[in-house]
Structure formats: structure tokens, C-alpha cells
């Protein structure tokens, strides 16, 4: 297979397959989780402003008192790479063109120098978190194969994308094809690994907020 054939495949059948598995996977997993339902809470509720599912969905994005100081690496590197990923994925001009071809809608992007800078920050933050996972006893203790695997799944698209733009190591066409391939792997595995927290995080925060909100506790 030539470089061009490889690129054509990942842009065509490969992409269709990955998006198909991703969409079906997400729908199935959401059904599998949330169809379990929960019992109605019969205790007399106590109503307090700010104690609800929706408020916890937002509030939990902010570290509770004292926690930022306690675990700065997890919080700071965590914020940087999450926000970084969002900026790169949704505001890099070529990505917006891709979404436009897929969804038919478009929006303004950020200058490519800014995206470059964000990509480097994201790569650094992810390396810091990997180092933290290896060296911090609690994280090391909790880590399984999935934790290393999903780290790689998330890291590779960023790295290959940045390298393609910088024309590093491999010809642009090959690197771009590798970039798309790693994104496809990410899409395929996302619904079936801990990466699925990208979806369930909203449900989890909402349940937490609602269950405790019933008691009048703003968590």
C-alpha cells in the first residue's frame, strides 16, 4: 500500500468504520448504563438553593476548598490537557473543515500559531500526568493496563497531529494518515474504556447532585 492509498483508506472506509463503531458504541453504552434506573427517594425532601443535579454538573468542575493546594499536579495538568484537547479538536482550522464536510456547519477557528502553542502545552501536561501516574503511589496502585492504554490512545493523535503540522520525522502524507488512524483508534475504543467518562461524567455529577440535593446538601 502506498502512502496515498493509506491516506485514502483512513479518510474513507477507515473513517466510516470508526465513526460507525463510535456512534453505535456510545448509544449502546449509554443505554446499558442508564436503563438500570433508580428507585424514587421517598424521604421528605429539603429544598436548598444550589443543591440540585444541574448545579453539581457545573460546580464539580471547580476543585473543592483545599484540594488544589493538596494535589496541584493532578488539577493543573488535568485542566491544561482537557481544555487543550478541546481547543485543538474544535478550533484548529483543518479540523473545522473536517467537521464542515461531516456535519455541514462551520465556525471560526484560532490562529495556527496559537493551536501550535496549545498542542505543545497539552503534550507536556499529558507527559507530566504520565510521570505522575508512574511515581505517585496511589495512582500507581490504582493503575491497570487500561490506564496506560487509554493514555496512549489520547496522546498519539495529539503527537502525530502536531508532528504532521511541523513536518517532523515522516513525510506529511504519512504522518497525516497516521494521525487520522490514531484518531480512529481513539474513537473505536472510547465507548468501551474509561475514556467513556467523557459522556458519563455528566450523568454521574447529575446523580450526585440530585441524590444529595434531595437532602438539601449542595455537593
Amino acid at each position: 500500500m502506498s502512502e496515498l492509498q493509506f491516506l485514502t483508506w483512513v479518510r474513507g472506509p477507515g473513517l466510516d468504520l470508526a465513526i460507525g463503531i463510535f456512534l453505535m458504541g456510545v448509544l449502546w453504552r449509554l443505554f446499558e448504563i442508564y436503563s438500570l434506573g433508580r428507585k424514587k427517594d421517598l424521604a421528605e425532601p429539603r429544598s436548598v438553593a444550589g443543591a440540585s443535579g444541574m448545579s453539581t454538573v457545573f460546580r464539580r468542575s471547580i476543585p473543592p476548598a483545599g484540594m488544589l493546594k493538596n494535589s496541584p499536579v493532578t488539577y493543573v495538568a488535568g485542566y491544561v490537557f482537557h481544555v487543550g484537547l478541546a481547543i485543538i479538536v474544535f478550533f484548529f482550522a483543518p479540523h473545522i473543515k473536517f467537521f464542515q464536510s461531516l456535519l455541514g456547519v462551520s465556525w471560526p477557528g484560532f490562529p495556527s500559531q496559537l493551536i501550535d502553542f496549545v498542542a505543545v502545552l497539552t503534550i507536556i501536561a499529558m507527559l507530566v500526568l504520565l510521570f505522575d501516574r508512574i511515581t505517585k503511589p496511589v495512582k500507581r496502585y490504582l493503575s491497570t493496563f487500561q490506564d496506560w492504554f487509554t493514555w496512549a490512545l489520547t496522546f498519539l493523535p495529539v503527537l502525530t497531529g502536531w508532528m504532521a503540522v511541523q513536518h517532523l520525522l515522516l513525510p506529511y502524507t504519512t504522518m497525516l494518515a497516521l494521525h487520522i488512524l490514531t484518531v480512529e483508534l481513539l474513537l473505536i475504543f472510547l465507548p468501551f474504556t474509561k475514556l467513556f467518562h467523557a459522556f458519563t461524567v455528566f450523568g454521574s455529577r447529575w446523580y450526585s447532585g440530585a441524590v444529595n440535593g434531595h437532602k438539601g446538601v449542595a455537593v
Binding site: Y34, R38, K136, K139, K194, G203, S204
Partner: peptide, 14 residues
């Protein structure tokens, strides 16, 4: 469902 959602959300951040 809450328990299922919680288990699926944990990222082992510690």
C-alpha cells in the same frame, strides 16, 4: 444507574 454511571466515570485520578 447511578452506580453504573459512577463506575464508568472513574479515571483513577486518585
Amino acid at each position: 444507574a447511578p452506580i453504573a454511571s459512577y463506575f464508568n466515570s472513574c479515571v483513577h485520578c486518585g
